[in-house]
Each structure stands twice: as C-alpha cells, then as structure tokens.
C-alpha cells in the first residue's frame, strides 16, 4: 500500500533530465570561457574580430565530436544491439546538427567583416553545409521509420557511413584551395597561435564540450523515457477517445 500506482510508466525512474552537477560545471566553464575570450589580446590582423574564433572553433569541434560519438555508438549498436547505444547515437547526431548549424552561422558572422562576404563557395563551406544537411537526413531517416529495430539498424549504418564527411570537412582546407584558412591547432607541429589566445580557445572548448555533454545526456534521457512509454502502451490511440475514425457511409459515396 505504500507505493502508489504509477499512472505514467517510467515517470518515477527518469530522474532530472539535466542532472545537477553538469549544468553548474557547464555554466561555470561558460563564464570562465567568456571572460578569457574578453581579456585575451586582439589579433595583429583582425583586431577585436578574432574573438569570434573563441565560439566559432569550439562549435565546429563540438560538431566533429558529436558525429564521432554517433559513429562510435552506431558501431556499438551493430555489435551489441543495445537500445541505449541507438539512443546515444541519435542524441549525439541531433546535438551535432545544432552545433554544425551554429558553426556555419558564427562563421558567416565572422566572415562578413574579415573576408567581406557572408558566404562563398569554397570547399570548407560547401562540405560543412553538406555535413549539416546529410546529418539532418540522418534525423529525418529516424523519424521516417516507425519500427525501433529497423530504425536502429538503418540509422546505425547511416551513422557510420556519414562520418566519412568529417575528415573531408577537416582536411578540405588542405586538399583544395579555399578562402577559409588552414587549421591552426589540429595540425602537426606547434599551434600557430599566441599561447594566451590558445589558452582562451581551449577554455571555451571545455565549456562547449560540457554544454555538449549536458545536451546529449538530456536528449538521451528523454529518448529513454519516450521508449519506456512506447513499450508500455504500444497501441495508444493517436488522438485519444475524443476523435473517432470516420466511417464510410453508403449514402456519401
């Protein structure tokens, strides 16, 4: 008699979606990163505009990270068939699409004052736009397949194959002539950046990674709760009892 009957399955065991410590850590890291970006010196060519790097670059790196996790979780699902890995792959891809879009938008805002244009058809920008739309296609594929097992299998294959674009995006600035500059940090040898600026960049990278972890974890938890509801009520009516399906009547035809 002590335990009340659970009205909605899973509601008691979801726990907080965002957790407690990770939001605080992400918030503190965000504030530290913002301060670091503001007190770091201006650039000898770009002046104050260089501060856009401290959010553009972490957004792009976080997008790479997302799709790498989707790759890992997809391989893991194909190997172990654990539903949690499928949810992890989906959550990470969704957050990755967000950060890819953010990197494109911030790059555009940075490009206008430095390059003089919002957009140009160089290899880095085109491959990044394709990355965005292809992973949007991954999310669309997940929506289009109702059966969980078929969805998990097809999206796992998609998640593995689509990752080939990430090295394509990263090395596009080396393989083709582009307006976008080549890598500063992720390259052989010493990063070609002043080390106080590098420190500010790395602090912002930590902040973005914590935000990424927070969002992916929350999304995976919501997906887990949704799965529990779907399992408990497999034949739930779409619009409840208020709407009844219309019936054909002989006089109307």
């Amino acid at each position: 008699m002590t335990a009340p009957p659970t009205a909605s399955p899973g509601a008691a065991s979801i726990g907080p979606v965002f957790g407690r410590r990770l939001p605080i850590a992400a918030g503190v890291a965000g504030v530290v990163g913002l301060i670091a970006a503001m007190v770091s010196p201006p650039d000898f060519v770009q002046g104050e505009l260089v501060r856009l790097m401290y959010i553009h670059v972490p957004a792009a790196w976080t997008a790479y990270l997302s799709f790498a996790v989707t790759l890992g979780a997809s391989i893991g699902w194909l190997w172990r068939r654990r539903p949690g890995l499928d949810r992890m792959a989906a959550a990470s891809a969704e957050v990755g699409v967000f950060f890819t879009g953010l990197a494109i938008a911030l790059g555009s805002i940075w490009g206008k004052p430095t390059w003089g244009v919002w957009w140009t058809w160089d290899a880095r920008l085109v491959t990044t736009a394709l990355l965005f739309f292809v992973y949007l296609g991954y999310l669309a594929l997940r929506r289009a397949i109702p059966d969980p097992l078929v969805r998990a299998r097809r999206s796992a294959v998609f998640g593995v194959a689509a990752f080939a674009q990430v090295p394509l995006v990263h090395f596009s600035v080396l393989w083709w002539r582009t307006l976008h500059q080549p890598p500063t940090v992720l390259r052989p040898g010493d990063p070609s950046i002043d080390h106080t600026m590098l420190a500010a960049l790395l602090l912002n990278l930590v902040a973005f990674t914590l935000l990424w972890a927070l969002l992916v974890r929350a999304r995976a938890r919501i997906a887990a709760a949704q799965d529990r509801i779907d399992e408990a009520e497999p034949t739930r009516p779409l619009a409840g009892d208020a709407v009844s399906a219309p019936r054909l009547e002989a006089s109307d035809v």
């Binding site: 201006p42 650039d43 390059w115 307006l179 002043d194 106080t196």
Partner: peptide, 17 residues
C-alpha cells in the same frame, strides 16, 4: 569583388607582445 583571405596565424599586435 574582393574577398580577404587571412591566414591561420593569430598573435597580438607587435606593440603588445
């Protein structure tokens, strides 16, 4: 039509380094 292609080097201005 002109686009500026800056490179991958970032450093403070000489006076502040």
């Amino acid at each position: 039509t002109m686009k500026v292609k800056h490179d991958e080097n970032y450093r403070p201005p000489e006076s502040e380094s």
